[in-house]
Design a protein around this nucleic acid. Structure first.
Lengths: 205, 205, 205, 205
DNA sequence: AATGAATGAGCATTCATTCAT
DNA sequence: TATGAATGAATGCTCATTCAT
């Protein structure tokens, strides 16, 4: 039922690349539509591609979902770790943290309806781990490569703490998306999340 | 698309009540099974009841899911608000908060696999709001009936803060369940959540 | 599939009669409603009677339909033949014919929606002969007991002619009902049908 | 409830056309069979086609019925109007009328059992208007394009008259089919209908 | 007699996937 | 490579009818 390989064949030619892109874009659009119409045939049709071609590049329906999820969420993870691993001297810890949170919010912000549908679709197809994995990886990354405190010491963060902190933040963001909350764009929302994030670092005291 | 009424007819005879219970129990078991076998026919069969009987009490498939969700999660919400609204003199704020968190964790704790599957099924069937609603109601409840601070003043909690706080806690719990994390039973987990919860009350400073 | 006996048991007690009446009335009402909700359970419920009781008096669903059809259409046939067989001297043939047509129209006129639904239901349940039979019987009746012409001779009407004449008239009425035509109440409509009926008698020239 | 579009997709390949034909032919045969077995699965099976293929070309069960009805009755309407609109000089009015009636009868004549079942099926599925529509259109056509009288004047036919005339004729034909009457093939039957039809034209006197 | 809970065969429809062209 | 016709297992749901109470 689960597809381990995302792509059936690596598309080499320009034409093939265009097809894959069209398929993913079509998938995103249909997801955005919101009606329960996310079928392989519908995706192919919207992509202007035959259903046969679709199956040339994706072994099954889930593969499309996974590919789309990776595309949509990859920025997110890297943006956060990038922000956190910045080592420019002038950059205060507080500021770096805020930037990371901001990157995270922005990552989740765009194409909100698509993301909501994507999350639902992933879960509906038994691929919820596909959602938690990147979060966990980011967390591991942060833990092993944590930003130094002003004192220069590396904070010792317990696994539980890390778990709760990451899930709390991502869970809040996910809830905001799923409930189509208008908070998500506001500065107060960012403030609250930053405050939440401090929990992570303050726990080492 | 959505089923507003959970039950089609109120069961009067003992026989009927037994049927409804059997159906819900069968639903829980099948969900627990984890295969994508949650079909009305499968539920009826496992309940030892005909498909017709099933539909005598539930207007459609979703209604079963909703009824099960309410049964499984109702304790949760009320347990929390009960804990929070305790006004025994000797009971410190900290203690009350901890009790509320504990109630929440315990509500989510039992039958973990069933709950995970239930959550997935609710989302897969477009009923994700059924998950957020009780949380939101609890939040409203807390907001309008907040525990007094030691000083005797009622803390003014902004909506954003309340939103973030509730979603952070529930999001963490949900993640713990979905990832089948072993943290969920540990005291440290509870500690971390309590610390998180303080964020809500401390925001009025 | 077809029910030859309309009633399972002849209701003797007042209570039983009331039940039967209630059931037929409920059936008529539901038919009138027009939504495809004509189910035995729905009829029983509307009649304020249990489904078991319904089956005490009607062997199957079709029996209800047939009983209702006979009740609704019996007047029609007899009214026509009554009109046609009047032998009062002062009554001109033309006048008698008009009265017969009028009786027919009036028979079809009331409870138009119910009749339409009844016709549809009868056909849908393979009971279309239940509709044609009374017409045919009336025709036989007329043929063997035709009104005398002014000259005192009995007109010789060929079977084909009788067939066409009766079907033309009833067919027109039925169409008017099925199409919910507003013509059905107008005097011109009556005039036209009378003219049509003359075909029958004039054919013997 | 009603299917406005008869076809879901227009068949392009020869294979597809063959499928559609097979489905319609199978539908006709099953209808002819007379058992209440007109199910989509039965049609597909008899057509030697998978149920999926059936639904590729027909949006729902009713669409099959409608398509079949149009195929079976289309000739009818056009044949009549063709006959009526003939303007060859040598052709008398009487003759043209007779030809029209003959076309109508022939249209209804063939495959009598299929037609009976088709009519029943249309009505049973709430598509009775599908039966009256072509008649009404033909009537409108005749009204606006009536054959000239010998005198050269265009007869003014009142709507009621047209209604009664068309319904009388079609109603008679329908009755003949539904009752499986043997009259339908006889010359006398045609004569009677022609006489009936004269009613329409003679009404302008 | 009346009740109403239970039954289950049966049906319309969907959609991921294949494969001949 | 691309196409799209074909597949068919699978599913949600209805409703006439029975029978224990």
């Amino acid at each position: 039922m689960k597809s381990t390989d995302t792509y059936r064949k690596i598309p080499r030619q320009a034409r093939a690349l265009a097809s894959v892109d069209a398929i993913l874009e079509a998938a995103a659009q249909i997801l955005q539509g919101g009606d329960g119409r996310f079928t392989t045939n519908a995706v192919a049709e919207r992509a202007g591609v035959s259903i046969g071609t679709l199956y040339q590049y994706f072994p099954d329906k889930n593969a499309i979902l996974i590919a789309l999820a990776r595309q949509e969420l990859s920025l997110t993870g890297s943006a956060v770790t990038d922000s956190l691993s910045q080592r420019e001297t002038g950059c205060e810890l507080d500021e770096r943290l805020r930037l990371a949170i901001r990157a995270l919010i922005e990552g989740f912000h765009g194409r909100q309806r698509t993301r909501k549908a994507l999350i639902e679709a992933l879960i509906a197809n038994g691929l919820s781990e596909e959602l938690t994995r990147p979060v966990d990886e980011a967390m591991q990354d942060i833990l092993s490569n944590a930003p130094r405190l002003p004192s220069g010491t590396i904070p010792k963060v317990r696994p539980v703490t890390a778990f709760v902190a990451t899930r709390a933040i991502v869970g809040t963001l996910r809830a905001a998306i799923m409930e189509e909350s208008s908070f998500i764009g506001s500065p107060e929302f960012e403030d609250e999340l930053v405050r939440l994030a401090h929990t992570l670092l303050d726990s080492s005291h």
